[in-house]
Computed example of a mutant assay.
Amino acid sequence: MFKTLIIGALTALLAVNAHSASDSAGHLTTIDYSPYYQLTIPTADLAGAKIFAGVGPAIRFSDSLRLGGWVTSGEEDGVPEGFDLALYPRYVLGLDATDELPADLQRLFSLRAFGVSQDAAIAEKPYRNGMLYSACDYPSCLFFVTHHAQNEHILVLKTEGFSINSILSFLEADHVE
């Protein structure tokens, strides 16, 4: 148990890579989820934040602002090999009908599995490298992020208090090397 906590804490700390730069945006912190998915957050926004380990790094910025995320694959989600995972958010959010899919696959695409009600506001927006899909019951939102360069992994974000535009700005920020 203690060993698991230590490994989780180290994972969270390693996932948050701080890169500082002197540009017009100031200092930035990049959270690397994979080679395809990074969030770049103004470092000042992280003052007083608490970082937790879970499936991926989770950050409590304040009492009303929280962000947790993880990268998932088709294998982890139980979809068959060769399934285009970029379609996963479209099925979960009801943007594409699942009627033509086998019954066992249809059961995988449920908002309730993510703790989101069917009344959530659904949106999709392009960003620099792919598409951002959201289901929001404000202040809580579930985001799926796909990447044009691949269709085998997606980034899943669960947030409290963040708007779609905030998440888009984290995805589209210029990364500092």
Score class of each variant (00 low, 15 high):
residue 124 E to A: 13
residue 106 Q to R: 14
residue 134 S to H: 01
residue 110 S to M: 02
residue 147 H to W: 00
residue 142 L to V: 05
residue 120 A to L: 11
residue 113 A to L: 03
residue 115 G to C: 04
residue 137 D to V: 12
residue 136 C to T: 14
residue 128 R to F: 07
residue 122 I to P: 03
residue 117 S to D: 13
residue 113 A to C: 01
residue 132 L to G: 06
residue 116 V to L: 09
residue 112 R to C: 00
residue 133 Y to K: 09
residue 123 A to G: 05
residue 128 R to T: 13
residue 112 R to W: 00
residue 117 S to A: 13
residue 134 S to C: 02
residue 141 C to T: 06
residue 109 F to A: 10
residue 137 D to S: 13
residue 138 Y to E: 15
residue 122 I to S: 04
residue 129 N to H: 10
residue 145 V to R: 01
residue 130 G to A: 07
residue 148 H to K: 14
residue 139 P to G: 09
residue 136 C to Y: 00
residue 120 A to M: 10
residue 137 D to C: 04
residue 119 D to A: 11
residue 125 K to P: 01
residue 114 F to A: 06
residue 147 H to T: 01
residue 144 F to A: 05
residue 135 A to Y: 01
residue 128 R to E: 11
residue 148 H to F: 12
residue 107 R to H: 06
residue 132 L to I: 06
residue 113 A to M: 02
residue 110 S to Q: 11
residue 129 N to G: 00
residue 148 H to N: 15
residue 110 S to I: 02
residue 136 C to P: 01
residue 143 F to C: 05
residue 106 Q to E: 13
residue 111 L to S: 02
residue 128 R to V: 09
residue 107 R to A: 15
residue 106 Q to N: 04
residue 108 L to Q: 11
residue 146 T to P: 06
residue 117 S to M: 04
residue 121 A to T: 13
residue 127 Y to I: 07
residue 115 G to W: 00
residue 146 T to I: 07
residue 145 V to Y: 00
residue 141 C to Q: 08
residue 118 Q to Y: 10
residue 111 L to C: 05
residue 138 Y to R: 13
residue 123 A to N: 14
residue 139 P to K: 07
residue 106 Q to F: 03
residue 139 P to W: 08
residue 126 P to N: 13
residue 134 S to N: 10
residue 139 P to F: 08
residue 141 C to D: 04
residue 111 L to Q: 12
residue 112 R to K: 12
residue 130 G to E: 07
residue 133 Y to N: 09
